[in-house]
Simulated assay, not measured.
Amino acid sequence: MQKENWNDAIKDITLPDEEVRQAALARWNQLAKPLHGMGKLEETIARIAAIQGTIHPLIDKKGIVILCADNGIVKEGVSQTGDEVTAVVAGNFLSGQTSVCKMAKAAGADVLPYDIGIRTDVKGLTRTPYKISCGTNNFLREPAMTRKETIQAIHIGMQIVKERKQEGYEILATGEMGIGNTTTSSAVACSLTGEPVEVMTGRGAGLSDKGLTRKKAVIREGLDKWRPDPSDVVDVLSKVGGLDLAGLAGVFLGCAKYQIPAVLDGFISSVAALAAARIHPAVRNYLFASHCSKEPAHARILKELGMEAPLCLEMALGEGTGACALFPLLDMAMAVYEEMSSFDDIQIAQYEEFTT
């Protein structure tokens, strides 16, 4: 990073407890089932145990942190709808009338929306100190944000996690709402990975062929104009990113700092996770992929993070819906892990592990 000293903010980030992870894996092997019969869910629960520092982790209190913000780049015709939709959907989070609200109710999770930068205030949602500005700039005309605003958004994301940790949340999923944020995410992804615009840009919420062509041209022009420095995450986010992306990067940093498992949603939150991991590599150890979305670059970003999504459902909703879809699987895995009899309990010999 340049100019800013991040040591005070992230100096407490450490790796999860590897001894606890190994002990949790050993516990899985003692349960009266075929070895590794629960597949990747066994490693997932073991990682959660390591993060919480106990062989008996808890994921009963679940939250979905949703950061809402508008993007000035919408003025360039990169989305099918106008940015007035952001405020409408954000308001619907409060009334429970969104896809993620319905899914969260079924999954036993709380929806936790924040206005971090919607163009207009939303009654019941807009609060200080979370809102930084009324949207970002059009990054074809000027940088999306100042460095100060970007850093403020990152710190607010971390503060949100601290507050939710104090309230007893044991696992957090991530979501976002902001018209135009697949454009900002693609721009940030191109800068951080070096991949071409054509690889990293999809149709978002349903662009036509003409709209997609325009979107790619806008991203290419913005990157050519501002030349964001991939070694400086704040530079990238401030020039072509968004307040939701910067805030989500802070959420992932906060989850690492306060030792809370963080479940990624789709392409947008995964790009934010990559930004966080570039700020502090240990963040990767606190991240859990949920699904691989229809956005073509999502799989590429997950690969960059060294992650593989357990669900491939061709979802394209955002809001944290894909992350929420993972929660019931985790609950089922925890039920097996905590409640199933061991080989000793039923007095039969344990399976032997054979390697090839």
Rank of each mutant, 00 (worst) to 15 (best):
M1F: 12
E4F: 14
N7H: 12
L15G: 06
D17L: 01
E18S: 13
E18P: 05
R21D: 03
A23D: 12
A23I: 12
N29I: 08
Q30V: 09
L31T: 09
A32D: 02
K33Y: 06
H36W: 11
M38K: 10
T44Y: 13
A49T: 08
Q52G: 06
P57Y: 04
K62E: 07
K62Q: 12
V74H: 07
K75I: 12
G77Q: 11
G77M: 11
V78Y: 05
G82H: 03
G82F: 02
A87E: 02
G91L: 03
L94C: 01
G96P: 13
Q97N: 15
Q97E: 15
V100K: 02
V100F: 06
M103E: 08
K105R: 12
P113S: 00
I118N: 00
R119E: 12
R119H: 09
D121P: 06
V122E: 00
K123C: 10
G124Y: 03
L125W: 00
T126D: 01
T146P: 10
R147W: 08
T150Q: 00
Q152I: 01
Q152T: 07
M158V: 06
Q159N: 11
I160K: 03
V161M: 06
E163T: 03
E163N: 04
G168H: 00
G168C: 01
E170D: 13
I171M: 10
L172A: 08
A173G: 15
A173N: 12
I179W: 08
T182C: 01
T182E: 03
S185A: 00
A189W: 02
A189S: 09
C190Y: 12
T193K: 02
E195D: 14
M200Y: 04
T201Q: 09
T201R: 10
T201S: 10
T201L: 04
R203S: 11
L207T: 10
S208T: 14
S208C: 04
D209M: 04
K216P: 08
R220T: 11
E221D: 15
K225W: 14
P230G: 05
D232C: 11
V234W: 04
D235C: 07
V236S: 11
V236K: 10
G242T: 02
L245F: 00
I260H: 09
P261T: 11
V263Q: 07
G266L: 04
V271Y: 00
A272H: 00
A273F: 01
A276C: 03
R278Y: 10
H280Y: 09
F288V: 01
A289C: 02
E295Q: 00
P296M: 00
P296D: 00
H298Q: 01
A299M: 02
L302M: 00
K303N: 07
G306P: 12
M307D: 02
L311M: 14
C312I: 09
E314C: 07
L317C: 09
G318I: 02
G318K: 03
A325N: 13
V336Y: 15
V336K: 11
Y337P: 10
Q347W: 05
I348R: 08
I348Q: 08
I348M: 12
A349K: 11
E352R: 15
E353G: 07
T355C: 10
T356W: 13
